[in-house]
Design a binder for these strands. Structure first.
Length: 445
RNA sequence: UCCACAGUAGCUCAAUCGGCAGAGCAAUCGGCUGUUAACCGAUGGGUUGUAGGUUCGAGUCCUACCUGUGGAGCCA
């Protein structure tokens, strides 16, 4: 009697009769032999069909079966160093083959394809081994995020996705009809997090966020996942200390669990192994000085133009990349100018032109992966900032209210899951980090 | 929104000065007991993104539009 088997466990079944249920990933044949690459979701196994081992009609079926047909294969597991697959090194000598459905001609062949074609076929592309590997790493990253926070006293408290607030910035929000009134898809859970923080001390929210900005870059999605921890009685230094432990855990967990997947992605992991505390930190002002120096020294006129920056301006993509390249680990950039950051960030006591904030820039050009700060603690200052920014005071009444009842110094940050996936997997574009990317020119499939 | 580039067979691409629409892969048929994106032989496969213009003649030149890609900007 054959035992049901997951391909990932094939090494444990050597010499046994097993049954695998899955899909035909690829196939080749040579005379009386058919080599089928069968995938079952857990891995890929080579299944060898020999003319004399199966009924003649089953051999004929194996020879002509189209790519991605669904099937059930029974046979014995044999060790063979020639056998490809994931994990590979073992193969199945087939004694019986049952086709569940013979697929129609499959559009994605093992050959090369263009971006547009693959994105149009995203629902099928996810079956390819590269995409398979990315989704497995993504799942582990999400798991690592939750494990670390849950193990360190953070409570998951969900924040709403449908929100009432337009604030001053409706252009970057998706609006929906809420029984005749406008509502907006959440851009961040952070304001609600601050209320939850006062109830639970250390909290986080984790969910999809939506930005209607017409960004068309390799780092932006309209819909992306963000984890946002928020901590009572936390200073900027506390925040940085916590973030580096957190990010290190995520990276090291993936390295420990996904050697196979990172190999499929041909990711050079040496820079990732280097991700351990402490991370370097520089101030915004230092970063600007370094960029200006770099721009002055470069002989490339285009780079010089791209690196141009005046104190007070926020960094663009070329700036972030240049700063990150100066370090071999993720780098914290702290104390941005007040005008470059959000209204709720706590001004620095010694230099009120800057706020106590930090962005974490990933190496290798992956840009900002976290952004966080101390939050304004004083109700009068917060009310004044809301007024200065021209934001609706009525809409933010509950938020300012938080400061009237036991206000405490606190801090928090947001981490963009897809940017972390792109960085750890070494992907050139964020579109492959989420199953169904929502981009400026694409919402299908 | 701006700049640049691209669109030819199911896919990836070629087509010289404006002169017969081509290859590899995939598909179909045949061959082979160790293939790793197999290989060998054969067969079928086209409204050249859309609309207009120039020309004896347009995949190729011109205009507009559509779609996509790369980058910039935007980016609590």
């Amino acid at each position: 009697m054959a035992t049901p088997m997951l391909i990932q466990d094939i090494a444990r079944y050597e010499g046994q009769q097993v049954t695998v249920k899955g899909w035909l990933y690829n196939k080749t044949h040579k005379g009386k032999l058919v080599f089928m690459q069968v995938r079952d979701g857990s891995g890929i196994a080579q299944c060898v069909v020999f003319l004399n081992d199966v009924p003649p009609e089953q051999f004929e079926t194996a020879k002509t079966l189209p790519q991605e047909s669904s099937l059930i294969v029974t046979g014995s597991v044999r060790k063979d160093s020639r056998a490809p697959g994931l994990p590979g090194g073992y193969e199945i000598s087939v004694s019986s083959l049952e086709v569940i459905q013979a697929a129609e001609e499959y559009p994605i062949t093992p050959k090369e394809h263009g971006v547009e074609f693959l994105m149009d076929n995203r629902h099928l592309w996810l079956r390819s081994s590269r995409q398979w590997a990315i989704m497995r790493v993504r799942a582990t990253i999400i798991r690592a995020i939750r494990d670390w926070l849950d193990d360190h006293g953070y409570l998951l408290v969900d924040t709403p996705i449908l929100t009432p607030t337009a604030g001053e910035n409706t252009t970057s929000l998706f609006s929906v009809d809420y029984f005749g009134e406008p509502a907006y898809l959440a851009q961040t859970g952070q304001l609600y997090n601050e209320a939850n923080m006062a109830a639970h001390g250390k909290v986080y929210c984790f969910g999809p966020t939506f930005r209607a900005e017409k960004s068309k870059t390799r780092r932006h999605l309209m819909e992306f996942w963000m984890v946002e921890p928020e901590m009572a009685f936390f200073s900027l230094d506390d925040l940085i200390a916590m973030e580096q432990e957190f990010v290190t855990y995520i990276v090291q967990t993936v390295l420990a669990k996904h050697g196979q997947e990172l190999a499929i992605l041909e990711r050079d992991t040496t820079r990732l192994q280097n991700v351990t505390p402490p991370f370097p930190r520089i101030t915004y002002t230092e970063a600007v000085e370094r960029l200006q120096k770099l721009a002055a020294e470069t002989t490339d006129p285009e780079l010089r133009e791209n690196l141009k920056i005046e104190w007070g301006e926020d960094f663009g993509a070329p700036h972030e990349t240049a700063i990150a390249e100066m370090f071999d680990k993720p780098v914290f950039v702290t104390h941005y100018p007040v005008e470059a950051k959000a209204f709720y960030m706590e001004p620095n006591r010694d230099n009120p032109r800057v706020v106590n904030c930090t962005d974490l820039l990933a190496p290798e050009g992956y840009g900002e992966i976290t952004g966080g700060s101390e939050r304004i603690f004083d109700p009068d200052l917060l009310a004044q900032r809301v007024k200065t920014m021209g934001i609706s005071e009525e809409a933010y009444r509950w938020y300012i209210d938080l400061r009237r009842y036991g206000s405490v110094p606190h801090a928090g940050f947001g981490l963009g899951v897809e940017r972390v996936v792109a960085w750890i997997c070494g992907l050139p574009h964020i579109r492959e980090t989420i199953p169904y990317p929502r981009m400026l020119n694409r919402k299908y499939p």
